[in-house]
Amino acid sequence: MRCVLRAEWTKLRTSPGTCALLVGVVAGTVAVSAAAAGFSDPLPGADLPRLSLTGVQLGQAIVAVLAVLAIGDEYASGMTAVTFTAMPRRSRVLAAKALVVAMVVAVVATAAVAASVVVGRLLLPTYTLAARPAIGSVLYLVLIALLSLGIATGVRSPAAGIGVVLALLYALPIVNAAVADPAWQRRLLRIEPASAGLAVQATSGDVAIGPWKGLGVLALWAAGALLAAAVLLERRDA
């Protein structure tokens, strides 16, 4: 397993886009968070910790790209043939990839979230620090990466993979907001990966699902995607 981990770490580290993407996660998250904190005019009682973490909405897309490319690029370039020749235990390769991607994302997400919180404190005078939204956002980004990795492994094409992931992350919440029936809206908010997962950021107001429960829903999504990916990986031709 250590060899597999090292191989995956080397691949990720030496891919041409990785570095730019990691910088992008931090820069994008902080930029959008700062813009949201600086330009919007929060009403009294607004959820400021959440507002200061708005950038996660953009950061998650870049995290998803990173995770999709981790497996998608191998399919695109035919590298999978080499990988699976060297390491025939395919699930183990997937596990190693998941571990490496999760750790890398955890590091950059911590940096991005910490910077967003600092910027939020500087821009919003009445801001009070809250640990749960910040820690939860880091975990959220890690889980999004795992979900993306699982989906991309399942569809075997980077472009289609990212399409599915982004539809889950962005299109579903919009469809949701347009559903005018409040009961259905709440039901959907509780099961959709992005809205349930982001409940961890909320510190006030009426939320459809509890913060850690919501993150748990996202964890189920990620676990389900990885499991399905592992099964498909073992059964299908690479």
Binding site: A61, V65, P158, G161, I162, L166
Partner: peptide, 16 residues
Amino acid sequence: RRGVTAVTTAVLVIVL
């Protein structure tokens, strides 16, 4: 020229 980058860019400018 890269599917992932292009899809992400398109979705980010339209949907986000």
